[in-house]
């Protein structure tokens, strides 16, 4: 009896130690971000298009052109603003999704399976959690840059009218990037080749871009599709981003924010867990 009672606190203590061992350190992840930035400095030119220019091309291509066709009918979905102004904040959120998922796909797979730089990292005082937190933080940071650029363009062109609204949209893009980047990282660290990405992008990410309220209201979808749409992060990002841009009130703000955070946090925990499992193999 006495022996058992003295073991119990010990066991709790060692379990706590194990959790602390696996948990991210409050600051060490910053080294990972520093590493990513140094890599990115060398090869930023390529991603300028996918991150910064492409969203604007889509905005011009679909917003302006379709806007002409939508014409006066725009009012029935936009509540009065032009079609460009209607889709711009939504495109900002869906671009955050696109950039975050692709940044969390090939670059992470490459480091985990091809160049194996992560193996080198976890051989230092950094642990698996630090590496994942750093990787996700870098992705979110990169999206923040791209989103700031996009918001700037919207302000300059007068598509966005209020600077505070633009700032709010920036925040929503960051949240959206977190909600997509983290689960995508969790997927990537389990992959052996990039074949799975083809399926993920073509069958999930692409349709999300269309059916999350970006180009037309979710309410126009069949009911089942509406439910499905609200289960994914992008619909929430689009709803928040648009209401901030147009200054229309949203109901259930915390429901939307909560959904994005839930995806991000759950994705991060999964990414840390799966990455640690792979590294410790």
């Amino acid at each position: 009896m006495t022996a058992a009672s003295s073991v119990a606190p010990n066991r709790t203590r060692s379990r706590l130690a194990a959790i602390r061992e696996a948990a991210p350190h409050p600051t060490r992840w910053r080294h990972v971000v520093a590493y990513m930035i140094s890599v990115y400095r060398r090869e930023w030119q390529g991603s300028v298009f996918s991150g910064f220019i492409e969203p604007l091309v889509v905005l011009a291509g679909l917003g302006i052109g379709l806007g002409v066709l939508v014409g006066d009918k725009a009012a029935e979905i936009t509540g009065g603003v032009s079609y460009v102004a209607y889709i711009a904040p939504a495109l900002m959120a869906s671009s955050a999704m696109n950039l975050a998922t692709s940044e969390a796909a090939w670059p992470i797979l490459a480091r985990v399976a091809w160049v194996r730089i992560y193996h080198a990292m976890v051989a230092t005082p950094l642990n698996a959690a630090d590496v994942m937190v750093g990787a996700i933080a870098f992705i979110v940071g990169k999206v923040a840059f791209a989103a700031a650029f996009f918001a700037g363009v919207l302000l300059v062109t007068g598509i966005a009218t209020s600077p505070t609204g633009a700032l709010g949209m920036l925040g929503i893009s960051v949240l959206t990037a977190f909600a997509f980047g983290a689960p995508m990282a969790a997927f990537s660290v389990t992959q052996k080749s990039d074949q799975g990405f083809a399926f993920l992008f073509r069958l999930i990410i692409t349709p999300l871009g269309f059916f999350s309220g970006t180009y037309f209201p979710i309410e126009n979808l069949p009911f089942a599709a509406q439910v499905l749409s609200w289960c994914t992060p992008l619909a929430h990002g689009v709803a928040l981003s648009r209401s901030l841009a147009l200054g229309t009130p949203v109901t259930y703000v915390w429901f939307h924010v909560g959904a994005l955070l839930l995806w991000g946090i759950a994705g991060s925990i999964a990414a840390i867990y799966l990455f640690r499992k792979r590294m410790l193999k």
Partner: peptide, 21 residues
């Protein structure tokens, strides 16, 4: 999988936005 891309465009833009147009 490559076949789905145009299908999503048709549903999303052709019918989705087309519903408004």
């Amino acid at each position: 999988t490559g076949f789905f891309e145009p299908l999503f465009f048709l549903l999303g833009i052709g019918y989705g936005v087309g519903g408004v147009i």
